[in-house]
Amino acid sequence: MIKTIILIILWLLIIPSLMGLYMIKFAKDDNKNILMAYIVGILIEFLVFEILAIPFTFLKFSFTALRIAWTVMITILTIISIILNRKNFKEILKVNIGKVKEMPKILTIIFLGLLIFQGYMGFSYMYEDYDDSNFVAKATIARDTDTLFVYNDIGYKYESFPTRHVFSPFPYYTATISEIVGTHPAITAHTVFPVAFLVVAYTVYYLIGTALFQHDRKKTMLFMVILSGLYIFGKYSRYAIFVRLLGRAWQGKSLLANIILPFIIYLFLEYLGEEKDGFYWVLLFITLWAADLLSSMSIFLPIIECTVLVVLYTIKDKNIKYILKFIPCCLPSIVYGIMYLIIK
C-alpha cells in the first residue's frame, strides 16, 4: 500500500513536475513556476502516450510494448530535465517556497479544506457511470489480454476498427499507470484518478486566477474558494462540467472539459498575443496534440475554442500573425480528424 502511494505520487506529481521544468526553461516569465511545470509535465505525459499509442495500435503491438516504450520515454525526458536543471533546483525551490509564504492564510486554508473534502469524496465514494463498461473495461482488457483494440467490450474481436476510440486511447494510459503503480485499472480509474486529476484541474484554475488578477494572491485565493463552491454546488445538470470533474474525473472527456479547455483559456489570457509569445504557441501545439489522447471530442472542441479566440485576437490587434501561428498548432488534430473521417 505504501509503495503504491509513493509510486502514485512519483508518477502523477513528481515526474510530471520534473519533466515540465525542462520545458518551462524557455518560458519568459514562468521559468521557475512549479505549478506551470506540473501542468506542462502532465501534458507531455499525455502527448508522448498519444504519439506512441496510435502507431503501436495500427502496427498491432502489444500493450506491454506500449507501456514499456512510454515508461522509457518519460524516464529519459525526466532524467534530461533533471540534468539540465540541476543547478537551478535550489533557486526554483526558493522562489516557490517564497510564493507559498506569501499566500493569504485564511483563504488558503478554506480552499485547501474544500479541496480535501472534494478529494475525500472522490476517493471514498463510488459514482456509478455505465460509460465505464467501455472506458474502464478497455483498460482492464488491455492489461488482461495484452492487446490494443483487438477485443471489444464483451470479449469478441472487433469486426471493424473502432475509429471513435483508436485516436483517443486514454483507457490505455489508465492501464499503463495501473501497471506502473501496481494497482488494478478499476482502482486507478475510480480511486486514484479522482484525486490526482482534481489536483491537476485546480492547478490550472489557480494559474487562471493568477492571470485574471495579475498575481494578486488574495484575489486569486478568493477566486479559488468561490470556484470550489461553484463546483460543490454545480449539479444543476448531470451534463455540467462540474459533475464531470467531481463524479467522473477518470474519463478522458472530463479532463478535456476541466483541464484542457481551461488551460487553453489560460494561454490566451496570459501569454498569447503578447510580445515574444513564441514558446506559448509551442505550448498550445503540445496542448492540442496531448488533448487528442483524451476523447474523440478532443480532436474538435479545442480547435473550435482556439479558432474563435484567434479570430477575436486577430480582429482586436488587426494582425494576421495569430492565424499564421495557429495553423501549425492544429495540424496533428487535423490529421487525426481526417483519418477519423476516412477510416470511419
Partner: peptide, 29 residues
C-alpha cells in the same frame, strides 16, 4: 455570494440520491 451559489446550485454529494455510494472496495463496484 456563498448563499447565492448554494441557492442557485444543487449540492453534488446528496448521499440519499444514491449517486455517490459508499462501497467496501477500492474498485468502486
Amino acid at each position: 455570494i456563498i448563499c447565492v451559489i448554494i441557492i442557485s446550485g444543487t449540492y453534488m454529494y446528496h448521499l440519499d440520491k444514491k449517486e455517490f455510494i459508499k462501497v467496501g472496495n477500492y474498485y468502486k463496484v
